[in-house]
Amino acid sequence: MLNCRDVAHEASDYLDQNLSWWRRLLFRLHLFVCAKCRKFVAHVHITRDFLRRRGPLRASDQEIEQVMQNVKPSAPDQS
């Protein structure tokens, strides 16, 4: 059997489908009997989906400008 500590440490692997089928079964058995771990795994799930949906941080105009200046010497003319 898995205990709560195991479940907490393996929650990402469970949600990302990276556990073996046997480990996954043990994980689910634990969730079936443990409300605290169900809550924990739900929180990890919400956290992961929230973070994924925020999307990437864009570069600032200065950062883009700096890259373009370095790149331009090797660039063909674009007038």
Binding site: P56, L57, R58, A59, E63, I64, V67, M68, V71, A75, P76, Q78
Partner: peptide, 17 residues
């Protein structure tokens, strides 16, 4: 074709990562 606008869009999205 090394189009500057397309390249800038790429920089904007992938520079920080």
């Amino acid at each position: 074709q090394q189009d500057h606008q397309a390249f800038e869009a790429l920089v904007s999205q992938l520079h920080r990562p």
